[in-house]
Amino acid sequence: MGNKVRPVIQMTVAWSQYPEFTHGTEGGLPLLPRGWAPKTLLATVRQLKKLGLRPGGHDPVAVLYGYSSKGGQWFAPLYLIARAKPMLPMTPNRWRSIAKANTARRCCPVCGRDRGYIIPPSLGMCVPCTEAGENTNASNENGADPWAA
């Protein structure tokens, strides 16, 4: 599976007063392969988060792209670090709401106990309730083997 060859072109960009080399455009934004973006000027949302910043409502100025090990192509919007705003602080009300949501995820709907771990959505109940439900069989109360003829 061959990678698509993108032509290298020179164009005006938002992060430099001089034209820069890009690989064309994607959605109207300059397209940069992995390793071409200036690390001191542009960052993805995850990189901004590590710096304690957020995009702050600004639109991306470029698109970063690359290929996964399986050959799939990925894209990530790039933002100007200079325009980024600081992350919003965690207020006491936000901490309370997160704690309340996590408590609800830890409580078993069958027995009503806080199990201290997140109840698996695939089970819908805590592990002890699931195991108790598997061990009790209403059709086999006398202990006889259900497979015996």
Rank of each mutant, 00 (worst) to 15 (best):
V8T: 09
L32E: 10
K100S: 09
G112H: 05
L42K: 03
V5P: 02
V110H: 07
V13S: 02
V110G: 01
K39F: 01
L80F: 03
S122L: 14
P55K: 08
G28W: 13
E131V: 13
L29V: 08
P109E: 01
V110M: 03
T12H: 15
V110R: 07
K100F: 00
M1V: 05
A99K: 09
L51M: 15
H23Y: 11
L123R: 15
E131R: 15
V8H: 07
D59A: 15
V45K: 13
W36Q: 10
R115C: 12
C126M: 05
T12F: 13
Y65I: 01
M87I: 14
W147Y: 14
P38S: 05
L41G: 01
A138L: 13
L64W: 00
C108L: 04
P55F: 08
Q10N: 08
P38W: 07
T91G: 06
S97Y: 02
E20C: 10
G52K: 07
P60W: 05
L78C: 04
K49F: 04
W15N: 09
V45P: 00
G116V: 07
S139V: 03
W95E: 08
L31A: 12
P128Y: 08
W15A: 06
G35M: 04
M87F: 01
A62Y: 04
A104R: 07
L88H: 06
